[in-house]
Design a protein around this nucleic acid. Structure first.
Lengths: 210, 210
DNA sequence: TTGAAAGCGGTACCAA
DNA sequence: TTGGTACCGCTTTCAA
């Protein structure tokens, strides 16, 4: 399974590596048409595919972002992954998805590995169990954004739903239909999961007004 | 955001790059305890994280497998991704998930990019729209396995459900409950999606026996 | 027991 | 308009 390299292409086309590299990066400005054709042909004949890793090592960008989700089985998660994937694909980026299972240890492992793999940034549904690590990345100026959960201890950009508003809207709906009182049922709040707390708080605020 | 490299560690520890590399790869056999300690300390102090890309470039393995799913919104897909992730994590591998949206063009794009990213192998829920490309990968001896759908034109390993058996079991259940006849409703079969065809075929076989 | 140096497959500067 | 070469960060001989 020997792979075709840029040197093979260069040799086959009878030009230098540098010239092939120019071609690959679409810098045709000073390139003779004949040269361009030769390279094009060589690439086609050899079925050459550039080694992105080698390239990334040099240019210091992998065009890849890591996504660490809390639980990949939740449909909400899936929808977000899908959305991220969509925008990435438009800008020719790629994502590496990791499932932390709401386990801080796993989360830490994944953060470390993504960092080692030189991803350009990480999107996390944070467990909240790795404050020190989050901080360190922040200190490194490493691009990181949180999803769905807010960690008050550190000022990392987070994209969140307006959960209070959601509760308010739900209650309003009841009111509009003429109901007099509403209750709320929630899963565990012991872990201080942002959305849950906010929904409850929204519920409380709105409920008083009934 | 200057990253710490193996050279930094070597300098800090007062040894050579090679020695640090030995350490990183746990080849302590001939290493003086003192040397080991120095390196350990340097790594800790500098918060060094090896650049996996540089390593992969040399060792020609990324410990990463690509997963191209037909539709990431299907729960079946999610469960499989999760399962793959689980076994990967046990052997210290990682996955890059791509969503082909059942679109052969997207599938082709992703196959090409994963190949370029030097993944060690690819798992595909094949659209069936890229026979030539599948064949080429096969010719390269590139590790590839299909999931859930079988492409008769080429002999690529595929993991499938026993859908005929599933239909048979469903019908048997009806029989056991004393019903006399059963029908089947299916989504579109115009694309020759393996599971659907097999379920119908299983249904037909079993139904005759009622 | 450790280090020097070549090489992995690209990019980019500078000279030709 | 093209090519030589150093370099990205790591591994791996081979010599010291």
């Amino acid at each position: 399974m020997k792979r075709v390299t840029i040197s093979d292409v260069a040799k086959h086309a009878g030009v230098s590596k540098s010239t092939v590299s120019q071609f690959l990066n679409k810098r045709y400005d000073y390139m003779a048409l004949e040269t361009k054709d030769k390279i094009e042909k060589a690439i086609e004949e050899l079925k050459y595919h550039p080694n992105m890793m080698a390239r990334s090592l040099k240019v210091k960008s992998t065009k890849t972002v890591g996504v660490i989700v809390a639980n990949i089985l939740h449909e909400f998660t899936t929808q977000i992954i899908r959305a991220i994937e969509d925008v990435c694909q438009q800008v020719d980026f790629h994502i590496i998805v990791c499932n932390a299972d709401d386990d801080p240890m796993k989360e830490e492992k994944y953060i470390t590995m993504l960092y080692g793999k030189q991803v350009d940034g990480i999107i996390i549904f944070p467990t909240g169990g790795n404050i020190e690590l989050y901080k360190r990345l922040q200190d490194y100026n490493f691009p990181i954004v949180f999803m769905d959960r807010f960690i008050p201890e550190i000022g990392i950009d987070s994209v969140l739903l307006d959960n209070e508003m959601a509760s308010a809207m739900a209650i309003e709906e009841f009111v509009n239909r003429g109901y007099q009182s509403a209750g709320i049922i929630t899963t565990s709040v012991i872990k201080n999961v942002t959305p849950r707390l906010e929904r409850i708080s929204g519920y409380k605020k709105s409920n008083c007004e009934i």
